[in-house]
Write a protein that binds this DNA or RNA. Structure first.
Lengths: 112, 112
DNA sequence: GCAAATTGTTTCGCTTCCGTTTCAGTCCGC
DNA sequence: GCGGACTGAAACGGAAGCGAAACAATTTGC
């Protein structure tokens, strides 16, 4: 893949996301969402903050927003009640799946 | 490209963007930026709003933000002074180039 | 020449995000 | 037990985003 193709792909995917009024997540939120859905659980606020090199409140707020959108859910860890475990949801899985399919579709439409 | 690969690529690119404290643009802003740098000029507020299916103030505000970051610049059209022409900048070109290279690099690191 | 249309910006009230700091709840070593 | 360490959330002031509507500046049509 050449940089010009990569940029064009990125543009096309973003354009379709924006145009179709998908939830307007920030770059950070999207990074968090994909990490939750691609990296193996368990996911904690602290772990995500470390993985993204951001502060914990950033994760907390992102989870608030994505929780309201039903893209993720929070559950208190029963073994260590200080922890909050972030879990995937059906809606979130569908959203991520749709997103991945969108990328592949746009990649196929690209000129060579 | 399979959806799982596409998602993994997207995650890796977003993670590096977030971690390296690159300008935290929204999805809309990124879509606007890439459109300015990939689609042929001239670019106007109205044209970008139509291309992204958003309102004009969205474009105006995004240009304010990205203008402050020196990623784009605005110039009044001398032929039709109602228009504002959006132009590329050296900083913006470097940013976009770096972004494209980043995608390619992450693509190469991906498992098959 | 002048009303109507077009373009981009501004304003309004509201929501969301930011970094920093502080707080409440929980666990652990002693 | 109990003080210190740890985890996630809440509070705070400030910045920036949103949609809708109103706005100046400019061009166009008659």
């Amino acid at each position: 893949m050449r940089p010009s193709q990569a940029l064009r792909l990125w543009q096309q995917v973003l354009l379709s996301q924006v145009r179709e009024n998908e939830p307007d997540l920030t770059m950070r939120q999207t990074a968090i969402l994909l990490t939750i859905y691609l990296d193996p659980p368990p996911h904690t606020v602290r772990g995500l903050a470390a993985r993204l090199n951001v502060t914990k409140p950033v994760i907390t707020r992102a989870l608030d927003t994505m929780g309201a959108l039903k893209l993720v859910s929070r559950h208190r860890d029963e073994l260590d009640k200080r922890n909050v475990l972030i879990r995937r949801t059906v809606e979130g899985a569908l959203f991520v799946e749709r997103f991945g399919d969108g990328i592949v579709a746009k990649a196929h439409e690209l000129p060579i």
